[in-house]
Amino acid sequence: MQENRGVWVYIEQNEGKIEGVSLELLGAGRKLADKLEVPLAGVILGDSIRHLSDEVIYHGADEIYVIEHSVLKQYRTESYMKGVIQLAEAYKPEIFLYGATPNGKDVASAVATDLSTGLTADTTMLDVDVEKRLLEASRPAFGGNIMATILCKKHRPQMATVRPKVMKALPRDSSRKGRVIEEKMDLREEEMRTKVLEIVKDVTKPGLADAHIIVCGGKGMGDERGFQLIHELADVMGAGVGGTRDVVEAGWIGHDHQIGQTGETVTPKIYFAIGLSGAIQHLVGMKNSETIIAINKDPHAPIFGVSTYGIVGDAHEIVPLLIKQFKEAFKKGGEKTHA
């Protein structure tokens, strides 16, 4: 265990593009590595992806481990897992971070089992106890407003998956230099049990993750009909619509719209939080939005703790007023620019 050294970040690439969360993790990993005074390394697998190693270094890594192989063209647990394990066993990192995306969680879970080590899921805060060289991975727990710090004392590497959009990437610095370590892997397509037949991307509707404005409604909207006000407000601005888990479970809106720990993490320019209390699992999914506007009839609702502007009042009264005044002002504004 003594010999394990260095902070690693699994760099997820899809079709030759690095996922944002991987760059965010390089930012977070940089801080941990500096505190521990060890190198920060990225790990990337794929087919023809060597050119991405510079990007990883520009975003904060000192080293990048690369495995290129035609069998790695598409993500598959069995092949990617094998490569990651091979690297971890050969170079023994002490901390290993993954983005909490479908593929990131998938590979991390398999790797943790084979390396027989601990894996903390969906972390939202990372720190390190320098003396004990312990990763402190914190995440919301249970239903209440509470965080739990998970430790992995006796096993290495200490692993965690981290929610997208909660850590900050470093600005790209193309003057940074680093070491590229290329590894070979013995993989044969005939030995693969799994085949990817087709990948279908839904490009028609930009996900909530890309929306500049999001209007999110909670249980306080009363019922499915009351929730229509959320759609109406979103419509006048061309905004995305979100819901809390309670609203999704009530069936007022589909799963794809859930924001929070078990839904999407979003960072729009403007986030409306209407008739929702602001439970920790919700906050971790939206609190990094630039401007947060909260409407709630309970002045003590936790959502006011993160909001830029708060209105204490009844959503059924305020939202129609907002829609009306917005329409009027927008029309006037529009005329002015035309004149």
Binding site: M147, L151, I280, L283, G310
Partner: peptide, 16 residues
Amino acid sequence: PTIVGKMFTPPKPEGG
């Protein structure tokens, strides 16, 4: 391998 180290209420943000 994993244990719960501590439980804490998240630092209260300022709020607007």
